[in-house]
Structures are given as structure tokens and as C-alpha cells.
């Protein structure tokens, strides 16, 4: 299939998936117990006051109308107003993303920075000392919960040595202090990712090293290192990128947990506190946002395939 047609088909599929997903989220929140108007006004409110607020919030409209209104709002950026904060949900999410996006980006960069060299190095001599070390690292990295790593980092580097704050976020106006507040959470989030990526990188590099074109490159007189970085690694990147995409759901789950440990005002703590305060409109929008991110990243990963794989590019 030509790439353009394949791509437009994927976009169509994505739109359909998002429609279904948003409907599922909407219906789940609808079915959840608790009337938003009642929650906002408290249990002592008069019935007619509650009814008036329901009308004001548009909660008395038919189900389908409300769903479509929400969906329309997603496109125009009007996601409704938080029941507990009283601010527009879009504003709330935007504010929290300024913590979560840099955090997850830092974690991903760190994970790649650890796993790529380690995986490539380990693959040079399978079952050698470096490989054994890398494999122990990935076994433990996968098994250790990131929120526990967070707690240990606080115990050792924040409480013990005092190098980092134990939690909280001073806001980006604080400059370096803000970056410093994100370092330990990013490390906690990155280690399990790095463990998975190291494994994948190692396996991919070993597989590509045995391919004919690498042998040809060596036979042409390329040094071992040049063949490795010019031919082996670029071709081994494909599964690594795929795994990065597949790890997004875990990165999001991890962010919810790690933000909680470090009391960072991110999107994860927003979702969590909204749930405990039954601020369902926030829950609804945050869950949709997460789902959109996962699905869009999957499509991007597919598209990257074409960019990264010289063989697929040739077909385009």
C-alpha cells in the first residue's frame, strides 16, 4: 500500500478509535454515582437550588446532546468548569501539563541516554561481563516499582544528603530550582523505562549485527566501530522506537505515581485528586487526554517506521 494511502487510513482509524474511546469514557463517568450539582452545593442544598445549578451546568439536557457538546468542546478547547477548583478544566490541564510534559520528556531522554549506549555495549559481546551487568540491570529495573525508587531517592539524596528537595514544585519562575525539583522524579520514572529499552536495544543490535549488509560493510573495509554506528545501530533503532511508543501507557501510569510521591502539581496528581474529590468532569477530560496521547503516539511510531527504515523509505 502506498504510504500516503496507508497514512490516511491510519488517521481515519484513529478518529474512529477516539470517537469510541470518548464515548466509553463519557458513559462511564455518566454512570458514576454522585450528582455534580449536589456535590458543588453540599448535601444541605435545597432541591430547587440543585435543579437550578443542574440547568445552569447543562446537566438536564439529554445524554447524546451532552456527549456531543463535550466532544465539540474538546475541539474548541472548552472542556467545562471544574466542580472543585471553579476554574476552566482546559486552563487547569494546561497549567498541570507544564509540569508533567517536562517531567516525562526528561525521563524519556534519560532512559534513552542510559539504555542506548548500555544496550549497544552489551550487544558487542553477548554473555560477556557488560552484557551480564546490563541484563541484571534490566531484570531489576523492570521489577522495581518506580514509586519505590522515588521514595528511596528521597530517603538517600533528599533527606540524607540534602542535594534535592523532598518534593513540591516552586514553579518555572524559580529557574534552576524548578529543574532541580524534577530531577529525582525524572530518574525514578526513567529507570524502569531504561531497563526495558536496554533489553530491546541489545536484542535488536545483536540481530542486526548478524545481517548480511553489516557483514558486507565490514568486508568493504569499514572498521568495526564505523559499521556499528553507520549500519547496525540505525537499523536497530526500529524496535527501540516501537518500544518507546509501547511504553507510553506505562510512562503515564508512572507519572501519576511518581508525581504523587514527590507531590508535584502535574496532570497525574490532578487526575488522582479529582477522583478523590469526585470532580468527575476533570477525571473525564484527563482520562481522554491520556487516551489521545497513547493513540496518537502509536500512529506517530508507525509513521516513524517509514522514516527510520531505509527499506520502507525506498518503497515510498
Amino acid at each position: 500500500m502506498p504510504p500516503l494511502k496507508k497514512f490516511s487510513r491510519q488517521i481515519a482509524g484513529l478518529v474512529l478509535l477516539l470517537a469510541v474511546t470518548s464515548l466509553v469514557i463519557f458513559l462511564a463517568i455518566e454512570a458514576a454515582p454522585g450528582d455534580p450539582a449536589q456535590i458543588m452545593l453540599g448535601t444541605n442544598a435545597q432541591a430547587d437550588t440543585v435543579a437550578a445549578l443542574r440547568a445552569e451546568l447543562g446537566l438536564d439536557r439529554p445524554l447524546m446532546v451532552r456527549y456531543l457538546a463535550w466532544l465539540g468542546g474538546v475541539f474548541t478547547g472548552d472542556l467545562g468548569t471544574s466542580y472543585t477548583y471553579g476554574t476552566p478544566v482546559a486552563e487547569l490541564i494546561g497549567e498541570r501539563l507544564r509540569v508533567t510534559l517536562p517531567l516525562t520528556a526528561m525521563a524519556t531522554l534519560l532512559a534513552v541516554a542510559i539504555s542506548l549506549p548500555l544496550g549497544v555495549w552489551a550487544a558487542q559481546r553477548p554473555n560477556g561481563p557488560v552484557d551480564t551487568l546490563a541484563s541484571v540491570f534490566s531484570q531489576f529495573g523492570i521489577a522495581v516499582p518506580n514509586f519505590w525508587i522515588g521514595l528511596l531517592l528521597i530517603l538517600g539524596l533528599a533527606l540524607g544528603l540534602g542535594w534535592f528537595p523532598t518534593g513540591g514544585f516552586p514553579g518555572w519562575g524559580a529557574g534552576w530550582l524548578a529543574v532541580q525539583a524534577l530531577i529525582l522524579p525524572a530518574v525514578a520514572l526513567a529507570l524502569p523505562q531504561a531497563a526495558v529499552l536496554t533489553r530491546v536495544t541489545r536484542a535488536a543490535v545483536i540481530e542486526v549485527t548478524n545481517e548480511d549488509f553489516v557483514r558486507t560493510a565490514r568486508a568493504k573495509g569499514l572498521t568495526r566501530n564505523r559499521a556499528l554506528w553507520r549500519h547496525t545501530v540505525p537499523n536497530a533503532l526500529l524496535p527501540v522506537v516501537t518500544m518507546l511508543g509501547l511504553q507510553i501507557p506505562f510512562l503515564i501510569s508512572g507519572a501519576v505515581l511518581v508525581e504523587n510521591v514527590f507531590t508535584l502539581p502535574g496532570i497525574g496528581t490532578l487526575a488522582y485528586s479529582a477522583l478523590s474529590q469526585r470532580d468527575l468532569i476533570v477525571v473525564q477530560n484527563v482520562v481522554l487526554l491520556f487516551a489521545i496521547v497513547v493513540m496518537v503516539v502509536n500512529v506517530i511510531v508507525d509513521a516513524l517506521y517509514v522514516l527510520l527504515d531505509p527499506r520502507l523509505r525506498g518503497r515510498a
Binding site: 478509535l17 466509553v24 469514557i25 463517568i29 458514576a32 506505562f250 491520556f290 487516551a291 502509536n298
Partner: peptide
């Protein structure tokens, strides 16, 4: 495979938040 895609977009913590609300 499409339904799979939808389910895969819901990491357990996320569906637990949604189910927790429910």
C-alpha cells in the same frame, strides 16, 4: 484488533481511576 487498540489506550491506573469513579 481495533478494540484492542482502544483497550491498550487505557493503562491500568487510568482505567482504575475511571472504574474507581464508577
Amino acid at each position: 484488533m481495533s478494540v484492542n487498540g482502544v483497550l491498550f489506550a487505557f493503562p491500568p491506573i487510568l482505567s482504575a481511576i475511571l472504574l474507581g469513579a464508577l
